[in-house]
Amino acid sequence: MIEQLLFWVFAILACGGAVAVVATHNVVRMAFWLVVSLGSVAALFFLLHADFLGAAQLLIYVGGTVVLLVFGVMLTASGPYNAIPTSPAEGIVGGAVGFLLLFVLVSSIGSVDWTEVSGRLPAVPAAPYLVDMTLAAKADESFVNTGSPRAKAEFAATQQQGRTVRQLGLGFLGLRPDRHLAEGDGKGSASGYFLPFEIVSVHLLVVLIGAAYLARAKRRVVPEGSMNVG
């Protein structure tokens, strides 16, 4: 019951913050509402048993990205540029398009029977023997092996509730504790995220260097002797 309540609270906060971001004109206020919205999303993550992701959301978005945006505001939007007004017509058109899009999305979401869809998915988590041996030992294997897919998913979910740090870490090292290696065709479905992780890390490094290069202070007066440096 408390979970439901919390969901609704944070869902409304997140949606409301997002709408407020759209609605306000002042950049600083927009940043504030953004913080509210993103923080609520982090809370939703926790509700979804994604504890590490929620923490990352808070750290990176709320603590990092938004601060970065505010710095950007500080460096650029001084004085009159803090709030650049949008014409009402644009606002109306934007709103109309937004509502239409929302309608499309919501109607799509509503028209799908998610239970049935998830049941059709092939990936059934095997016994989480690597994750928590003690829990796995206690599990009723006959129930697990004979139950419906949904039961299996729920079982697995309850087994891993809010304890995703170790699993993600192993996943990024190339191991998948929540998958049986012999599953599926046994070739690729049980692979970890080692390679994407590396790619993303290098990507991040490159982007940061590039950002630093782009944002560096330009020297306006070039000394005579260094013209050829360019």
């Binding site: 644009e90 058109v93 934007g94 398009v97 937004g98 239409l100 899009l101 499309v104 799509s108």
Partner: peptide, 17 residues
């Protein structure tokens, strides 16, 4: 820029429609 974004959105809606 903003117009483009708008067109993207409209496009998506049209596609879905």
């Amino acid at each position: 820029l903003r117009q483009y974004v708008m067109w993207i959105a409209v496009g998506v809606i049209a596609l879905f429609g």
